[in-house]
Computed example of a mutant assay.
Amino acid sequence: MLPHSLVLATALLVAPMVAGAAPLPFKVEVKADLAEPWAMTFLPDGRMLVTEKKGELLSLDGNGKVAGKIAGVPKVAYGGQGGLGDVILHPGFAKNGIIYLSYAEAGPGDTAGTAVARARLVLGKAGGSLQDLKVIWRQSPKVSGRGHYSGRMAFAPDGHLFITSGERQKFTPAQDMKQNLGKVIRLTDTGGVPADNPFAKQGGVTAQIWSLGHRNLLGIAFDADGRLWEQEMGPKGGDEVNLILKGRNYGWPVVSNGSHYDGRDIPDHPTRPEFEAPKVSWNPVISPGGLMIYSGAMFPAWKGSAFIGGLSSESLVRVALKGDGATKADQWGMGARIREVEQGPDGAIWLLEDGGQGSPGRLLRLTPD
């Protein structure tokens, strides 16, 4: 058997293949072995941050080599789908060094909920630390169970912070305006409620809500024209890509293009036109992970497309976006659960394997073949 370092140096210069599948249109390089990675983001100098579900925040160099750990990460409620989640930069990071983390936070008894913290990142040659950490948002209420935390984040072009909040496998909170579960949340960069939020005048957690009727939202991104796109897991079938609009209701759990896991039917979206229907849905499911909208030059034919990591489908999925419409384009078998998709500074596409259910948990870089 080859030494581990030699395996990493040579592995997957040819892309993984699924029996009978067409060759992949990109080269795949393995850049690092990680432990249950969940999210990544690039710093202005080309370095990157990667979260690991058990609670580690890692600093990596521009080639994907782990440089060290970041101290000061809040304690996470690890288990099931819970742990350390997303990491993004403040729009003014180059001047203020502020980053945001989402994570599962323990509550009283056996409860937990998603939280978002803001902190100043201080990096050294190897690792670094988080300073002045403050929690700026929490799911309310915290509930039992260890699923559907969501917790993806994105900054709008106007500087507002959007957060996805899963319904924690409780169904009805997605339609309950007195809870912020099953919603897309819109805040200021410090956690305040913007006065022009659609339900701001109602106060409390209701004021945070931008859209409702969501299940488990594991990707959110803005396109070049400022449209907000989101993808979420359906139940048994019915994974969705949605165009998120102010104050709209997306129907869960009243409607879905899937069914309950026990086979019971859920009315499809066309039966209830008052709810926003998905732009794209999948049966069978792809189990969507991260979402990225490509803007680089390395793959010019894909500029403006959405890329989705497929978990149970072990795939990378491309969705073509045009204006406010979307269509399925490509689905490439990757041989492992894909949790996260990001664009590198040079336009390369980077992936994180999930690190669970037999998936190795590697950091991959895709370049044109």
Rank of each mutant, 00 (worst) to 15 (best):
1 M>D: 00
2 L>C: 00
3 P>H: 04
8 L>K: 09
9 A>I: 06
16 P>G: 04
19 A>D: 13
20 G>K: 11
21 A>E: 12
21 A>S: 14
22 A>M: 07
24 L>F: 03
24 L>S: 05
25 P>I: 07
30 V>P: 01
32 A>H: 02
37 P>C: 09
42 F>T: 07
43 L>E: 08
51 T>H: 01
57 L>V: 08
61 D>M: 10
64 G>T: 10
64 G>N: 05
72 G>K: 11
81 Q>T: 09
86 D>W: 01
88 I>C: 04
88 I>A: 01
91 P>R: 09
96 N>H: 07
97 G>L: 10
98 I>V: 15
106 A>Y: 00
107 G>K: 05
107 G>F: 04
125 K>W: 00
134 K>H: 05
135 V>K: 11
138 R>T: 03
141 P>E: 04
166 G>D: 04
170 K>V: 12
170 K>L: 15
174 A>P: 14
178 K>D: 14
183 K>A: 07
185 I>V: 14
188 T>H: 02
190 T>P: 00
191 G>T: 09
201 K>L: 10
212 L>A: 09
217 L>F: 00
222 F>E: 06
222 F>S: 12
233 M>D: 11
234 G>C: 12
235 P>M: 12
240 E>D: 12
241 V>Y: 04
257 N>E: 13
257 N>D: 13
260 H>Y: 15
271 T>L: 14
272 R>N: 11
281 S>F: 15
289 G>F: 06
291 L>I: 06
292 M>P: 08
299 F>H: 07
304 G>H: 08
307 F>Q: 08
308 I>A: 06
312 S>C: 00
312 S>M: 12
315 S>Y: 01
316 L>M: 06
323 G>H: 07
327 T>K: 15
333 G>L: 02
339 R>S: 04
342 E>R: 15
343 Q>A: 05
344 G>L: 13
348 A>T: 14
355 G>Q: 04
357 Q>S: 15
359 S>M: 11
